[in-house]
Nucleic acid binder design. Structure first.
Lengths: 114, 114
DNA sequence: GTTTAATATATAAGCTATTTATATATTGTA
DNA sequence: TACAATATATAAATAGCTTATATATTAAAC
């Protein structure tokens, strides 16, 4: 599993991206999907997830719709038009970040030091 | 510039990786190199850098050697054998992280939702 | 001649996103 | 009948960072 320090900071982007590609999801399903996509390497804790969702709802990026499924409440989160704009920006940032990290990781030692 | 939230957590790995590839460096040079490698997209502040270096020195991953250059003190940081082990682990983690992020970012919408 | 930018290291206070712990409740499985 | 899985939620604590501040020299600009 990837240490949380590293993942810290990209969780919001990950959540938004999932909602964009999968459509409306409820919290529990989001944690499942992240684990599935990353083969268990990234685990979204509920203590991190729900504050993120609530915050995004508050700022108008997400809207909710409650559903009763087997006597369990499911709260579906869906992107608003504003949310779609936010995701686009966040994805762009994340791509730049990935690119920068790769440039650093791919750096090979110089011959002068070999 | 990439928001600091995203970079937070990978700074230590970046510093260690640079010291591995470039050989001993002093703090100021490290900040310069990171900016250069990432085309200004990642900026290492001194408030972040020096505590990282001091911590790595304390735990035995780095050793220091002072040099006087133009009446300016330069403190060179170099990896110890332990440091080399730590870098290897950190790089491995970072690669897994990058891979996981890419898997999430590259996810395309399903036809069933199209 | 004097101000400004660049070089060089350092620390303390404050912020904020996260982890950890805790709470609650139902359904399916062993 | 107990345990695992499903489902949401919050509060306290942590930790890594940013921001601000301090100090000192050299080179360039004006």
């Amino acid at each position: 599993m990837i240490p949380t320090d590293l993942i810290k900071g990209s969780l919001k982007t990950i959540v938004l991206k999932l909602l964009k590609e999968e459509g409306p999801m409820h919290g529990y399903a989001i944690t499942r999907k992240v684990e599935e996509l990353t083969e268990g390497k990234i685990k979204l804790t509920y203590g991190a997830l729900y504050p993120i969702l609530h915050k995004l709802e508050k700022d108008g990026s997400l809207v909710t719709a409650s559903e009763n499924f087997n006597n369990r409440i499911r709260i579906y989160y869906a992107l608003t038009p504003k949310g779609h704009t936010v995701v686009a920006d966040k994805i762009k940032e994340l791509n730049e970040f990935i690119e920068s990290l790769q440039r650093i990781v791919d750096t090979k030692p110089r011959l002068s030091h070999a």
